[in-house]
Design a protein around this nucleic acid. Structure first.
Lengths: 332, 332
DNA sequence: CTGAAAGCGCTAACAC
DNA sequence: GTGTTAGCGCTTTCAG
């Protein structure tokens, strides 16, 4: 590198402190000297060293983001929401993938803390006691699309259970009694929400849960396609499918079609997340809308407030969900 | 925070230097004192401050990544490749979105340089002189899925022109004479590659370019769908479509179907990138495979070498491409 | 094998 | 308005 604040100070005939002031936009600088300093900065091509600044100020203007997998449409969209707001508030984000692996998550949290991030955004499966211990760090943490069963940590998400409940209730109201549930993550907190909503809706609808209609598959299209074949072979066959994600829902649609049946005439399908692909398949997918971008954006905004010690009325923000009706369900 | 290297040193009855040595795994420490220090570190819950370390060592073990839009499947997949290798070599990545906006790109480069990243990965449209000036920084830069017309900067990519050429040649070989080209970015370097390949193939196939068959649309499904309607209304109608991305290709497929025609019987369609959605639509999409994950991984690996001053035989690595044949084209 | 000491480049009181 | 002076928490010679 080379040119430091000291070089600028010398060249401009002022002290480092003054240079620091103009860099940081402090008001207490005479316009003429500010101008002079600015010119020297320009001439020398000076670029403040953020690491040195971070050490001195104890602020890095970077925040750490831990998510399961950036290559998933869902998290990628969310990450974009985070990054946009971060940029708006002059933060950078360090992006890390955890693959929902708890050990990795823990390691990443430690790693990011060492890097002195000003805050942490955590999107994961569960929040264990070990997580909590690390989160009792000097920097604020916001859970994103992740629920804290204990409700201790700030978080931003939709009411997944209610959303699932709504979707399944809708199906019940249309007369369906054999509704399959296709999931790739029953065990995680997000997966559980969907599962609970499904059961609750059935219970309130007076339909007994048939465990054979509940299918857990690895999180890819191919696995879901295979899993659905089994379910569709059941007698009596399910007449509706509630899937935990759009990708699974699309697999469900194709499985139905491969069985020589029609969506939505023979089987209705509802997906979850309303990712972009929902409208890129035919029939277009009816899906529970989870406002991913907004969840990320709101979470990041909340984090900035926490970092700046602004008082936040409610640390748990639940964003609204809804169902986007398209062609994989019949008009009500 | 609180506990520093100094605290550990005092508590363990050694000097900071020794603590530093055990942290950094230096060989020259007596096993017994190493053990003692390690125990104290554990007891105190000491966590080295990476910022201080960065200032002293002039290495941050973080690298900057500039890409157009993480919410795009293509870049998300690529980012995952980058991050995996980065993790493997103990680097973190700062992820930034440029929206292909040159001013933003320039600002981001400066920003990341200030943060003292150890290296830069740039995925963008063009490399202007201004870019070059900034890239003459003290840290290595690798272009990712981005070509440097001048071939000065290290880069990792496929031969996009050749790939497009191959796809269009394939179509020509099957007898097609009216091949539409659907693109969302004729003007960018990547877009241009596809365009050039298209023209070259036509030229060599003895088919004159019909400008009305070349459609540029905004980069979304809906826009592409609309754009294709016009093209399909042409007389004589195109019998094949080469699309610059899978999303565009899917729109093309649907436009064909909406016109009451069949893919691939009436119109054959080839996409580009072979993203996951290619196999999630029916008919499944024939697509030019661009190994996104690998491109990211190889680029990151190359960057680590450059950072460590290992000598790199060729700074421009061209990864192989191929066409994955599925149902949107007829068997040859 | 270990310690002392000099920075790394900046911010933040505190004076003037 | 501006300068002086301590650090921030670590790495890194250089001695011994």
């Amino acid at each position: 590198m080379g040119v430091t604040i000291y070089d600028v100070a010398r060249e401009a005939g002022v002290s480092m402190a003054t240079v620091s002031r103009v860099i940081n936009g402090s008001a207490n600088v005479k316009p003429s000297t500010r101008k002079k300093v600015l010119r020297v900065i320009e001439e020398l091509g000076y670029r403040p060293n953020a690491v040195a600044r971070g050490l001195a100020s104890k602020k890095t203007t970077t925040i750490g983001v831990i998510l399961p997998d950036i290559s998933s449409v869902f998290f990628a969209e969310l990450a974009r929401g985070i990054e946009d707001i971060a940029t708006m508030y002059h933060y950078n984000i360090i992006l890390t993938n955890s693959d929902q692996n708890i050990d990795k998550e823990l390691k990443l949290i430690g790693n990011l803390l060492e890097k002195q991030v000003d805050g942490l955004l955590f999107l994961g499966s569960q929040v264990t006691e070990e997580h909590r211990r690390l989160f009792k760090s000097p920097v604020p943490v916001v859970l994103v699309a992740t629920q804290d069963p204990k409700g201790e940590l700030p978080s931003v998400h939709i009411d997944v259970r209610q959303a699932a409940y709504d979707a399944v209730s809708y199906l019940l109201k249309k007369g369906h009694r054999r509704i399959a549930f296709l999931s790739d993550r029953l065990s995680t907190s997000l997966g559980r929400g969907r599962y609970e909503g499904y059961r609750q809706a059935l219970a309130e609808g007076g339909v007994e849960v048939d465990e054979t209609l509940i299918v857990e598959v690895p999180p890819h299209y191919e696995a879901a396609l295979k899993g659905m074949k089994t379910v569709l072979a059941l007698q009596p066959r399910p007449t509706a499918i509630f899937a935990a994600s759009d990708e699974l829902a699309i697999a469900a649609v194709h499985a139905v079609q491969d069985a020589g049946l029609s969506v939505p005439d023979d089987v209705e399908v509802i997906g979850f997340d309303n990712t972009r692909i929902a409208q890129m398949v035919r029939p277009m997918l009816t899906s529970v809308v989870q406002p991913m971008y907004d969840i990320g954006a709101v979470a990041m905004r909340l984090l900035t407030k926490l970092i700046q010690n602004e008082d936040v009325p409610t640390k748990t923000v639940v964003l609204p969900h809804r169902i986007e009706f398209r062609q994989s369900t019949r008009p009500a």
